[in-house]
Design a binder for these strands. Structure first.
Lengths: 143, 143
DNA sequence: AGAGACTACATGCACATGCATCCAATGCAA
DNA sequence: TTGCATTGGATGCATGTGCATGTAGTCTCT
């Protein structure tokens, strides 16, 4: 019949559903809050954060490839995301001197400031949605 | 300065990044595999599964609202998802007799078969990506 | 040096999603 | 019953995403 899952499979499915629920809840709230109050999407924030971590102080910037592992997006989506950040004046794109195919992405002052302003809210959302076990409200849905 | 996270915050961030990575990995592989081999997206599969669970045997069907909590999608996205499933002949949409605003969504035989065919692959992907702690390859990216 | 394979990033296109809105049906109040 | 707010679901629209492809720069081999 195979109409039913083995206990092991049932466990996996439960684990997956919990993961999905947590992810949806957190990502949705994060996107909404960061978007409304700071004009940033979730992934935009992650990229800014990576840039702050990767080249704090120095203005070196990171290659697009170095940003890729941070956000779980396709290469094309990342390219456009950086385009959006650039258009918003939060990062600059510059040609790599050592490999002229590559692009160095660097935070601007505005970018750094925007990140700093947004971070507390980001942390707050995480503490709200991840800390407690229950996975209750706030689908990306109506609510 | 607030340039650094408190230990508690750092823990949350780490937890969130791990969640993001697992989600991206699993969702990506699930979408790719189910899509290629069964013509189903991840959420399509979840809806079929909910329908199987919710009205196995009986042909009653579930209201759209009852499906909503299953997939973490907006109401409009769910409506279109059901539209796709209907167009594919996997479900039927029928007016609710007791509340004529509502729509009863019911599995067709094809839908039930398609789900049954896809389920082993679904479980296999979960066991591949969720079982082990490391979160290694397969971004939605190049790889 | 020159040809071809490969890499880094950008872009055209199709499509799924969310938001706002719309329409029909229901519930409630007067 | 009529009028109005509310609910269930569908749809127009703008946007973000992935895939396939394009373009420019680099590497390798001869």
């Amino acid at each position: 019949m195979a109409e039913l899952d083995s206990p092991a499979e049932a466990g996996l499915v439960a684990q997956w559903r919990d993961l999905l629920a947590r992810h949806a809840q957190t990502a949705c709230l994060l996107d909404r809050e960061l978007g409304e109050k700071h004009g940033l999407g979730m992934s935009e924030f992650e990229v800014l954060e990576r840039l702050v971590e990767g080249c704090d102080g120095t203005g070196h910037g990171l290659r697009v490839q170095e940003l890729a592992p941070t956000v779980h997006l396709s290469q094309s989506a990342l390219s456009r995301l950086i385009g959006r950040l650039e258009k918003a004046g939060l990062v600059t794109r510059a040609m790599c001197t050592d490999d002229r195919r590559g692009i160095k992405v660097a935070l601007t002052e505005d970018g750094h400031r925007r990140y700093t302003e947004a971070r507390p809210l980001h942390r707050e959302v995480l503490s709200l949605t991840l800390a407690d076990d229950p996975v209750a409200p706030c689908g990306p849905i109506t609510d």
